[in-house]
Design a protein around this nucleic acid. Sequence first.
DNA 1: CGCTAATTGATCGGTTTAGATCGAACGTGA
DNA 2: TCACGTTCGATCTAAACCGATCAATTAGCG
Lengths: 270, 270
Amino acid sequence: MTDGKTHDTAESARPVFAAERRQRILELVRANGAVSLRDLARAVGSSEVTVRRDVRMLEGEGLLDRHHGGATLPGELTREPTYSQKTQLSGTEKAAIADLAASLVEDGDAIAIGAGTTTQAFARRLVRHTELAVVTNSLLVAQALADCPRVEVVMTGGTLRGSIHALVGSPAEQALSGLRVRRAFISGNGLTAERGLSTPNLQVASVDRAMARAAEDVVVLADHTKIGVDTMVQTVPTEEITHLVTDDDAPRDVLDDLASRGVRLHVARG
Amino acid sequence: MTDGKTHDTAESARPVFAAERRQRILELVRANGAVSLRDLARAVGSSEVTVRRDVRMLEGEGLLDRHHGGATLPGELTREPTYSQKTQLSGTEKAAIADLAASLVEDGDAIAIGAGTTTQAFARRLVRHTELAVVTNSLLVAQALADCPRVEVVMTGGTLRGSIHALVGSPAEQALSGLRVRRAFISGNGLTAERGLSTPNLQVASVDRAMARAAEDVVVLADHTKIGVDTMVQTVPTEEITHLVTDDDAPRDVLDDLASRGVRLHVARG
DNA sequence: CGCTAATTGATCGGTTTAGATCGAACGTGA
DNA sequence: TCACGTTCGATCTAAACCGATCAATTAGCG
């Protein structure tokens, strides 16, 4: 504020105003995308120190991004930090849940496996089983069992939902409607005693419902971050859930409530 | 060092910042699925040590997976023991074929893609297309296009054949019988002028046939090791093949024979 | 005319980055 | 299983860059 020009008219003298220099810096960065500090200094005819100051100021206003060695347009190289957090967030807990859930599967079973990273971890534990028949709409689950010759994997058809790597839509639901399995292993984004299992997506919910209908037992795989959480669409009501596999960080009150409604609990030690 | 720049116009060598380099590494891995460290270093113009550091950092953020000799997409979607096969065996030829085949696809097309490593490479080139509708029975193809929001991927159902990571059986064939696409991109294990495309497996052949029937044009993707080779089951007769994309090591006489039977040739420069 | 304030330029020390080297670990093939 | 080549990790070196302090020039003002 104080470092501005003394006169707004700027007609009296002809010094190289700081604002003008900064404008040129901005233009250069915009034109080239990325300019080194040295080139910038040469282009505007000032020292690197001055340009460094200017760039720092411009960064403060959010007009460009400062990097080691130069400046770039803002947001050009934005990294997405929230990409794989899901898989590594609670990896050990997921593994413990998956191990425990695998004990609910017997050789010769016919089971269905839904989409999700937890079910993917679960599927990896099934490679030791023999004569297994698995129905799934998850590419990740299918991939995990692909190299296992003693497990027959059947995929539903459908439209690929890239964010969760699973198939949805009426083809998937129809494929499930014609099948019957002993147990369905389903994950979700939230589980409460009142509303049961839920997920934020309509299409995913439909497929999960169809999968639950095709099974005698419904086993829910949910780590503690999902217990007591409710999301938009209900997929399986509590009454239809026969088993819940979770970890020991889950809130006790919700677990007790679920147990009182007939859900058999399996708590893995994290 | 301080080279006398004849003109102080900001037209100098564009700097490559660390963040930008990492972004390019990420793009390269995303585009090719698996890239060796040496290729990565050559592509970004840095030493292998530097690239190794970058890859390690990116792995720390979960943006890619590090393997011995290179990097792959995270989630080990491409868990294969023979890492070398994909990157160096006939990687360049496959890539050239895939590039050329991708030029046969236009925005807004509806296409079908069969199973195979060549078609997988082909699918990776389609991420830039928009408004694409893709039908496939290959998990690898679906996986390659999963993160592309502008491509709608529909999978046939069916039984998973682990060795080729594709779906076979009557559900797959039935799903294809109800569809109609402009072009089908099919690979195989052998292609001769007399018998056309062939594969050693009966179930795979049935699905490939169904895929060819669902398409107006049939495009065969086959590298030179498959040209002139005949395997057990015929999938598509020569008369139904409209395009062949191969590399320039393919035997000329077979190519001429195919061309005389109405197959349009596209020979990629290895 | 002299003083004050402000902006620019220069120098120094610390930090970050890129490249090179060497022992160790891994994968491959016999 | 063993041997060999390749790759990885760690340490080090060199160089570039950044931040801060200080000197110098210039404009403004009493």
